[in-house]
Design a binder for these strands. Structure first.
Lengths: 338, 338
DNA sequence: AAAGTAATCCGAAACGTTTTGGAGGAGAAG
DNA sequence: CTTCTCCTCCAAAACGTTTCGGATTACTTT
């Protein structure tokens, strides 16, 4: 493969000149530059990024660290959409993306930090990492610039992007209230999840502002899983028949709740209204079509990449980016006739 | 960041010895080795992959070239599952994966080959590239080892993985025949797609073996799109009311066909049976649940990565891998009572 | 005692770039 | 004629590794 040396030899100049010509420095004569470019083309020259990175001490590469890259995770394509978003922005720059995933058989006992350091990525984006993952601490404490998705940690080298979960939840619950519901239960995700805490807060706020009582017994954790949500909702409905609406912290769980309702021979939305969160693909296809709070996950990936690269280039004004959500009203919520 | 030199200095040996110690060569005393390893740990040493790659002339990196990494492609999560599969296998080795996508704004006018050469990937996997994409030719003609997904090209440096599309289609159509259908139409993808050609072949074989007529008017192209399939099916049903079953080259198109049937106030599967191809996530969730030919797309990614890395290490026996498909019978096909 | 062998180590070159600190020459200004 | 400035170029060092071809020492074998 042709190198800069080959070009230098053919052009009868030094490697320095070739390097500077190709990189657009001004201290090389325009004629020489053209000649060099021409020769480079003829020799089908591609610069060796490895060598360049080595000497420049930066690789123009960012790492995407995910943990949800398993077969099963295609149900909610959260991971995929983040990835697509990151990829989109990265493609608009001269950076490339390298993918690290934990679900590798742990035979290679390497931490994220080691992977990042070895591959000399300039920065990293972390997605799907649990808040209690020891690696999270490690990465955050290392000097590798990184941006987190849906985990609010901020420092000199760390930023994050998330959505306005409080407001999103609030809008959903307010919608339920608007259409006449007064007894609204919530199926949350799980206690330690940042988004769960925020969505609970939104739920609470909406109730309080409408002068409705907030009752902790009406809030259950569904662990973001369809089956668990179904089970919990079933219990709740049996115990508190006055409940007429559910706010769920994920669409998948909302589908579970709908199943529960059906099992009791009631129907959605006539007897019980259900609203989800996420706007996964399935939401618009299920029957009844699911009302939900849409998060633009693609945008989260995009913004995460943007933020990271801005940080790397030293032109990030802020280290956090909060995206908006959008209420999507479909068939699973409708005016309450009670 | 600590380098091999730092270790050498502290240990009082040469860099050569450190390198050889760390890489497990036998010509270094076990005591020295232990001391070196100890020091390496203390200094929190991580090898610089860039430098290593540069001198070894291989990067232990493979490139995944996809074209379908757009927001919209989350409907059929083909791309995602391939990626997950590739990632899975790669994670089991000491390789890493770097992602290239064409949907980058073309401001960076670089071809795949250039990207691969610049980043010095050892090999590449291509997915979602159209058979008439000029880059395909370029990559295949270059000396970069690569494996293609669903494109049957084979050479010294090129391999591919695909599923047995002829057999898959045949099984689907035979199933329709088994349950009593005689007038079976097909909605294919598009003419130049390799898989479309094969599935058509399977359709034809099944008909012939059952002594049913093969009629080209009953085969239409839906371009793998839901709406187009719906439209074409509508026309077909109006023109040939004797049709009682559809074999579709993708699940998405099958959903379109079901819509068409509904528009004519007929029902699936009672009036018209429909079978799809792919087994996308939606297939099992739609009503009626869609019978289909399942492809293990995750496995395709996995096997592609496996094949590529075997090729790179010179221990690939064959350059092609053909995976099996599985017929999944759900609600959209049922015994024909006509 | 000489020669051979095995174990352990090391110097230096190489990989392909970028960058630093000038060098050489031509023309302009004094 | 001398000095300055500008333009164009270059030699060499540096980045962090691996590897080739010995070199040294100690021990065995003749």
């Amino acid at each position: 493969m042709a190198t800069i040396k080959d070009i230098a030899r053919v052009a009868g100049v030094s490697v320095t000149t070739v390097s500077r010509a190709l990189n657009g420095y001004s201290d090389v004569n325009e004629n020489t530059r053209q000649k060099i470019i021409e020769i480079a083309k003829q020799l089908n020259y591609s610069p060796n990024t490895l060598a360049r990175s080595l000497v420049m001490n930066k690789s123009k590469t960012i790492g995407l660290l995910v943990s949800g890259l398993k077969r099963e995770s295609s149900k909610d394509n959260f991971t995929f959409e983040v990835l697509a978003g990151v990829n989109q922005y990265v493609g608009e720059t001269d950076y490339d993306m390298i993918l690290f995933s934990t679900n590798s058989t742990k035979q290679r006992e390497k931490t994220y930090t080691q992977l990042c350091r070895e591959r000399r990525v300039d920065g990293a984006i972390l997605q799907g990492i649990r808040i209690d993952d020891p690696y999270l601490q490690e990465v955050v404490e290392s000097d590798i610039p990184c941006v987190l998705i849906d985990i609010p940690i901020e420092s000199e080298t760390v930023g994050y992007v998330t959505t306005d979960n409080v407001l999103g939840a609030k809008k959903a619950v307010q919608h339920l209230i608007d259409i006449g519901h007064k007894n609204i239960a919530m199926v949350n995700g799980y206690e330690f999840a940042f988004v769960s805490q925020k969505r609970l807060e939104g739920y609470r706020q909406a109730l309080l502002e409408a002068n409705l009582p907030f009752c902790t017994h009406w809030v259950v954790d569904g662990k973001f899983e369809e089956e668990i949500a179904e089970e919990k909702a079933l219990k709740l409905l049996k115990q508190y028949p006055e409940i007429t609406a559910f706010f769920c912290a994920s669409d998948l769980m909302a589908l579970g709740v709908i199943n529960a309702v059906k099992k009791l021979d009631k129907s959605v939305p006539e007897d019980i209204a259900v609203i989800g969160y996420d706007d996964i693909f399935l939401a618009s296809y299920s029957t009844p079509a699911l009302s939900t709070v849409a998060q633009n996950i693609f945008a989260m990936g995009y913004e995460a990449a943007k933020l990271l690269i801005e940080m790397l280039e030293g032109k990030a004004k802020s280290h956090v980016k909060i995206l908006e959500t959008e209420l999507k009203i479909r068939e699973s919520t409708v005016k309450n006739h009670c």
